[in-house]
Structure formats: C-alpha cells, structure tokens
Computed example of a mutant assay.
Amino acid sequence: MTNTNSRQSEYPIDPLFLDRWSPRAFDGKSMPKEHFLTILDAAHWAPSASNNQPWRFVYAHKGSPDWDKFVGLLMEGNQRWAKNASVLLFVLSRTYNISSDGEKKPAGTHSFDAGAAWLSLALQSHFLGYHAHGMAGIFKDKIVETLNVPDGYVVEAAVAIGTIVDKSTLPDDLAEREVPSTRLPLSEVAFEGSFTGKAD
C-alpha cells in the first residue's frame, strides 16, 4: 500500500495518484502561458479510439477580457471559488468520426476519450506544481451558445487550474470540505468474470 496526502491505497501504487486531488482554494494569480500550453500539449497526447482525438478545449486566462464571461458559465456554487483559478477551461468532445469516404458516423467513445485527455491535463498540471479541479456544475446550453460550439460537439465539463493556497482563504462551508477525498474499496468497483457488485 501507499500512504501520502492523507490517503492510503490498498496496493502499492505510484504516489502521484494519491497526491493529485481537486482543491478549491487557489491563489488567484496568473499562470505563465507557456506553462498552460505545456498542460494542453500533454492533454492532447492522450489515447483515443482509432486516434480520432475527439477532445477540444476552450479556455480563458484570469485577467483576460474573456475571464468574467467564463466564470459566468459556471453554476454559482462553483463561481464562488473557481473565480480565483488561473485558468478556466471547458472540455468538449466531437460526437462523430469521419470515415474514409467522408461520412459522419457516431463516435461511441468520444466521452471516454475526452476523459483520458482530462486526466492527462490534471497530471501534467500536478507535475508543474498546479492543481486541476474538474466541474460538472456548469450551464451547458449557455456554453454552447456563448462559445460558438458547433453542431456535433458536446460540452463534457469545466476545469479550473491554479496554484493551491491554504483553505482558510475559502468561505467556511467550503473550507470544511477542502480535504483530499477517499475512494470506494477496490472490491466494490472491480469484478472478475462478471458484474457482482451492487446495482445501487
């Protein structure tokens, strides 16, 4: 087992997987653009089915003319803390593939592949000394309209990236939640031979 970051794995995994987590307390400082481009570059090297690379990223840096617009696309609960991130980013995915004859066909793994890109982004952020926090609390229809998302693409999630600071900078209710989360036991999520877990 591995012990780090107030977490303990059941088997000896690399500490990176326990040290990576999703805080809300960010310092509100800008990020060098070359750091963010490195993060994006890592994300776009994620694996995807048939190398179709369905992910797309639309982003804004804190202090840019687009910043307030991006913050406004988050639900209020996320706006409270994500406004102090260095970068806000929306992960999109293309729902179709284009065959060799130019025909559009449904892409069954577009969300799965975009998830791989998100993890690559989160890990590269961690390597550079930042933290990335993914969010589902967003206004998807408003994002599509505001950011000119074309037909055939869906909004998957938002991500806030920044430098972590002490949780005392958060409102009290958020500070209470500012701890690395645990996970279900491995036996509840992985089954040999057939699905033997609870259907919930």
Rank of each mutant, 00 (worst) to 15 (best):
M31K: 02
K33Y: 00
K33N: 09
K33C: 07
K33F: 03
E34L: 12
E34H: 13
E34W: 07
H35S: 14
H35R: 04
F36L: 08
F36N: 01
F36T: 01
L37M: 14
L37K: 15
I39C: 01
A42I: 05
H44W: 08
H44G: 00
H44M: 13
W45D: 01
W45L: 12
A46Y: 08
A46V: 02
A46C: 03
A46I: 06
P47H: 11
P47S: 11
P47A: 11
A49V: 12
A49R: 04
S50N: 11
N51D: 14
N51W: 13
N52L: 09
N52W: 08
Q53P: 03
P54D: 05
P54A: 07
W55M: 07
R56Q: 14
R56A: 15
F57S: 08
F57C: 06
V58I: 14
A60V: 03
H61R: 01
H61I: 00
H61Q: 04
G63D: 06
G63Y: 03
P65L: 05
P65W: 04
D68N: 12
D68R: 11
K69I: 08
K69R: 11
K69M: 13
G72E: 10
G72K: 06
L73C: 01
L73T: 01
L73D: 02
M75Q: 13
M75D: 05
M75G: 08
E76F: 09
G77M: 14
Q79A: 03
Q79M: 11
W81P: 02
A82N: 04
A82W: 03
A85G: 00
A85V: 10
A85E: 12
S86V: 10
S86L: 03
V87K: 05
L88M: 05
L88F: 08
L89N: 01
F90Y: 02
V91D: 09
V91N: 09
L92Q: 11
L92G: 05
L92E: 12
S93W: 00
S93T: 14
S93R: 02
Y96T: 12
Y96R: 01
Y96K: 03
I98C: 08
I98A: 05
S99T: 15
D101K: 15
G102T: 05
E103D: 09
K104R: 13
K105N: 13
K105L: 15
A107F: 13
A107W: 03
A107V: 01
G108W: 15
T109L: 13
T109I: 05
S111L: 13
F112L: 07
D113I: 06
A114Q: 02
A114N: 04
A114Y: 02
L119K: 10
L121D: 10
L123C: 11
Q124Y: 06
Q124K: 15
Q124F: 04
S125V: 03
S125C: 09
S125H: 06
S125G: 14
S125N: 04
L128K: 10
Y130L: 11
Y130I: 05
Y130P: 00
H131I: 06
H131A: 10
H131C: 05
